[in-house]
Every structure is written in structure tokens, then in C-alpha cells.
Amino acid sequence: MNTAQSKKILTHGLGVVTGKVAFYIEHPPRIEPYNNLMQVSALASGEIEHINAHCGNGWRKIFNVFAKFLFAARLPDHDITNYSTWQSYRDSALLQASSQEALLFSTPDFSAKTYDWHIIAGRTYAKSLLRDQVFTNNLTWLDDEFAVDYNLRLIISPFLDYRQLSNIKINKLVEIIRQG
């Protein structure tokens, strides 16, 4: 067994262990218990508000952009149709046990087949994560901000921020998924 096969990736973050989509970002919220997660943990109702209140505007943007993306994508079999707005989805279901998404702070584990789509948020972070990975051979850069590997169902996108992943770029991300 080679070294890459012998290493088990410790997946940790917020949301569900298996689902439709996982976004990968570098840092968890800098408050307990989120900054020391050792697994994927679903949020309870009101936890997004709690994180926003204690971790600032950056986290509010992350959750808002994530919810806007999911609402725009309307992924097949993703239970988002019961919500009239992205805000209602964010407040009632985003990253909770009944959801089908995750926000992960670990390296993607493509061998586990746990998510339909893996989206690494931020080109610089993606390059640092993928630097030593052999699977980057099939990664195609569509422009300076988006890359895709349809075989792995991996996308590199701008970071979850209004300026970086604007509504126009959310629509582009949705189109990339629809083409896959």
C-alpha cells in the first residue's frame, strides 16, 4: 500500500456526512466548539445566528452566499423547494441534520464518495490543498476563477463572499454543475 492510500483523511466541518454538495474552506469559526471539530457536525436551529454574532460579518457572508448558491442551483433531490427564499432556507435548514450539504475544513476525500459535488472555495486555498495531489491532471481551468474536474465532480470557485462569488458568479457555478 502506498503512502497516499494508507492515509485516512479526517473529514471535519459543519453539516451532514453525506449529501449533494460540500464546500471546502480553510478555517472554521474561531469559537468553541467549531474551531476544534474532529468530525462533521450538523448545526442546530439558531447556530448560524450564534456564529454570526460571535465571529463577525465574514461568517454571515459565508452562510448567505452558501444559501444563495443552493437556492439558485436547485440540485436534483435537494429538499429546498419547501422554502420561498434563500434566507428562509439559511435560517431553517442550512447545514442542519435534515440538509444535504456540508461546509468542510479538511481536504476532499474523493475515495469516500460522500458528496455529489466537492467545491473548494478560493483559488489560493485550492492550489495549496491540491499541490501534491495526482488527480489535478484532469482539472481544467475555465478562467482565472473556476476550474472543474467532471470525473471527480470537483469544482474550484471563488470564496464564499459577495464580491468574490457574486450573483453572476453563483450563476456560473450553477451552470458548471448543470453541465456535469
Rank of each mutant, 00 (worst) to 15 (best):
A102G: 03
Y89H: 09
Y150S: 14
R60D: 11
Y89W: 10
S92C: 12
A126H: 05
T136H: 00
A147C: 06
H50K: 13
Y83W: 04
A112F: 01
G56R: 05
G13D: 07
G19Q: 08
N64I: 12
F66M: 14
S98R: 10
A93S: 12
G58M: 12
F69V: 12
L173F: 11
I155F: 07
A112N: 04
T140Q: 15
R90M: 14
H78F: 10
S111I: 00
D109Q: 02
A73E: 14
D149K: 06
T140S: 12
V134W: 04
N151V: 11
A147Y: 08
S45N: 12
G13P: 02
H118N: 11
Y34Q: 03
N2P: 07
Y34T: 01
N2M: 07
D143P: 08
N36G: 09
N57K: 15
I177S: 10
Y24Q: 01
N2A: 10
S98V: 11
Q96N: 09
L154Q: 05
P108N: 01
D116M: 10
D77A: 13
L139G: 04
L10H: 01
N64K: 10
I48Q: 09
A73C: 12
S99Y: 02
A97D: 13
I156C: 09
N2Y: 05
D149G: 02
A42V: 07
N167G: 10
M1F: 03
D109N: 13
F146C: 13
A42N: 06
I9K: 01
R74W: 02
V21H: 00
S92W: 01
T114N: 15
Q5Y: 08
I80K: 05
S84N: 13
A97G: 01
R131G: 00
A97W: 04
I51F: 03
T81W: 08
K8R: 11
Q179F: 05
N36M: 14
S106H: 01
N137V: 03
M1C: 08
Q96C: 12
T114W: 00
S157E: 09
D161I: 03
S84V: 14
Y34H: 06
K113Q: 13
D144W: 03
L70S: 01
V134R: 04
